[in-house]
Design a protein around this nucleic acid. Structure first.
Lengths: 199, 199
DNA sequence: CTACATTTCTAGACACTGACTAGATTCTAG
DNA sequence: CTAGAATCTAGTCAGTGTCTAGAAATGTAG
């Protein structure tokens, strides 16, 4: 640690607050996240965070944006190197999303907070960017005739809803002891059969 | 109001706490729910709730159980009087569930909190009771050959996940200005096409 | 009816939190 | 070098959840 000498100006407080907050978030949930405790751990006065986040909600929103960006990166990466038919790539998307959801359930809850809220336009924006790759994937499949496309928007909605639902069920502990990957790919399989073009 | 005379023993505090808490919950979310404020509104001292709920979490859990019971009633009722093919009855289930979810989003979040938690066995139990009717509906359809049943459990999982996902998307505000009922029935339609027995 | 035990509620305390303020310190342009 | 902006400290406030001791009402024998 080179951070042994406490200077008056921390120099990187905003970033370190976010990092510490995210660590704490996964361990204790939103309820157990305290601005003062964060400041204490970082070694800064209890009022310091206010310089970077006017509000606790502002910190949470920033965490959500970061989460969306990271999810977006993981999705881009996974879908970028995914080859093969639409079915396979959609499964890759679902698995990546579900893995993220189960790895960071508390963060996901923040990311899914109401977006029609004052001060959440950047959240909505980040949301759009995060899901750009899967949306493009679906649109491409529709254009290529790989899936039914009578109503593209409805199809995309159904796919996203299902995958988000899987994540909810799993993080809620309602999956019991069923194997995650099997449930995910089984569900995707059913969906795809329903989306097959009616020839 | 016959409750004008404040007696020492309220006589019905537990029930009134739950009712007040639920009202507040929908307006302010979990964050804005304060035991002391509840006590103040009801006209009782700040320590009184502790007699009925040892913990704030205990109040929240009780709220979740009540929510599950009410959801179960609504589902039972809706599915009880639903006639017709499996497709129609499944749509009724989805609509009923989504309506409940959009009407009580904060309560739904409580109901979907992690169930593998110390002191949540009654939550899990209530969860099972609430979804008894739709689970029976699905099992019946499988038995009657109305839908594919190579793996009954997987099929049920896919259906529940999808419907829960719809609720998440809608309460998260990500549905935009699309008509709710159309999105719901459109998604169900796709699922059902995928579940049609392969003859 | 009385005496006792239990339930229910009050009142006071404690540590903690998020938010606000004034002022000290450091950084940075000009 | 200096003035102003950015950053941090320290003190304060109302509010919260939880704990405690004890008062008040209720229920239950004898």
């Amino acid at each position: 640690m080179a951070e042994a000498i406490p200077r008056y100006h921390h120099g990187n407080l905003r970033a370190e607050l976010l990092a510490s907050a995210e660590r704490k978030l996964e361990r204790t949930g939103v309820q157990g996240l305290s601005l003062r405790e964060l400041a204490r751990e970082i070694g800064v006065s209890h009022g310091a965070p206010r310089q970077h986040f006017p509000d606790k909600q502002a910190l949470l929103d920033a965490l959500a944006v970061l989460g969306l960006e990271r999810l977006g990166c993981e999705l881009d990466e996974a879908l970028g190197e995914a080859e093969g038919a639409f079915a396979d790539r959609l499964t890759v998307f679902a698995r990546t999303y579900v893995r993220f959801a189960t790895a960071h359930p508390a963060l996901l809850a923040l990311m899914f907070a109401r977006k029609d809220r004052p001060g959440a336009p950047e959240l909505l924006e980040a949301n759009g960017r995060a899901f750009a790759a899967p949306v493009a994937l679906i649109a491409g499949a529709q254009a290529a005739g790989e899936i039914d496309s009578e109503d593209p928007d409805r199809v995309a909605m159904a796919l996203l809803a299902t995958i988000q639902g899987l994540a909810s069920i799993i993080t809620g502990g309602m999956i019991g002891d069923r194997p995650v990957d099997a449930v995910v790919s089984g569900t995707i399989e059913i969906l795809l059969r329903g989306l097959r073009p009616a020839r």
